[in-house]
Design a protein around this nucleic acid. Structure first.
Length: 281
DNA sequence: ACCCGTGTTCGCTG
DNA sequence: TCAGCGAACACGGG
């Protein structure tokens, strides 16, 4: 399994893209007519030819490459879906599942690779990134903007869903996915099955700290593994060998906090959740 | 062979 | 009208 992107993986993609592309010009573009490029299709990418990359930004799991083109500013929106990644290759190097390619003026080629094609690429005229529906709905970015516990509390109290399910809603906390939700709830010592609306103010504060703690810890683990490599390969659970998480995919193991209970796996809304039945209440 | 999946969107339901 | 839920998407890996 390759990188399956939540906020930390997308942040790694942002750092890599920024390092590879900022200041470079796009020489040529190529793409296949896959669902990744719907509804506009591959030809929409041609607006990027000749443009110079200004910056690479991220809100939650949404990436935006801003470019200065001949006809003004252009944005490239990228969502990695379940299996998307950006890699850098030498010209002509075969790259499996490459769905779109940006050749840069340094002779390198940036490939958008995505076997399952759940990701999405979209050229945004005049870089109206914030106006995209996929972006305007998102909460502020936890890493860049911090987490406003009062706002988070308002969002949680307004739903009848379990807190774990609510956390996966990108309007509640952009960038949190299935792993980070489980990790954050473990850190906050909150049972994922609790109703979101029933959390106390103190629990909401712990949850905000849990999300930030988990996201930062995951990024540190990536750095330690050297995933900011020239090829941009993000090693993950099985590739790197060690599972860097406290509870995710650790069913049956001793709880790292209390050491007295075993981690359980449950399913909520069709997704796995891992928890310590003793620590999380 | 069969099952599972780190994300999002769609259509149905109450 | 709308929140919530399950299916669908498409493919590789265990």
């Amino acid at each position: 399994m390759g990188p399956m992107p939540e906020l930390p993986e997308v942040e790694v993609a942002r750092l890599n893209l920024s390092r590879w592309a900022t200041g470079r010009r796009v020489a040529t573009v190529e793409a296949e007519a896959t669902r990744v490029l719907r509804p506009a299709g591959p030809r929409a990418l041609s607006a990027l030819v000749g443009a110079q990359v200004v910056s690479v930004d991220r809100t939650g799991k949404a990436l935006l490459v801003r470019l200065a083109g001949r006809r003004g500013a252009v944005g490239l929106y990228s969502h990695l879906g379940m299996t998307g990644k950006w890699v850098r290759r030498a010209a002509g190097e075969p790259t499996p599942h490459s769905r779109a390619r940006l050749a840069l003026d340094d002779g390198k080629v940036l490939h958008y690779v995505d076997p399952r094609m759940f990701g999405r690429l979209l050229v945004v005229p005049r870089a109206r990134f914030e106006a995209l529906p996929a972006v305007s709905q998102l909460s502020p970015d936890p890493l860049r903007d911090g987490i406003d516990a009062a706002r988070l509390g308002q969002r949680l109290v307004a739903t009848r869903r379990a807190v774990k399910v609510a956390l996966l809603d990108q309007k509640v906390l952009a960038g949190v996915g299935n792993i980070q939700a489980a990790e954050a709830l473990f850190r906050a010592r909150i049972d994922p099955r609790r109703l979101a609306a029933d959390l106390t103010r103190g629990e909401v504060v712990r949850l905000a700290e849990g999300v930030l703690g988990s996201v930062r810890r995951t990024l540190e683990a990536f750095r330690a593994e050297g995933v900011l490599s020239d090829e941009g390969e993000v090693t993950y659970v099985e590739e790197g060998g060690d599972n860097p998480f406290l509870v995710y995919d650790r069913e049956g193991e001793a709880c790292p906090r209390c050491r007295r209970a075993r981690i359980e796996r449950i399913v909520q809304s069709g997704r796995s959740t891992f928890l310590c039945p003793r620590c999380q209440r």
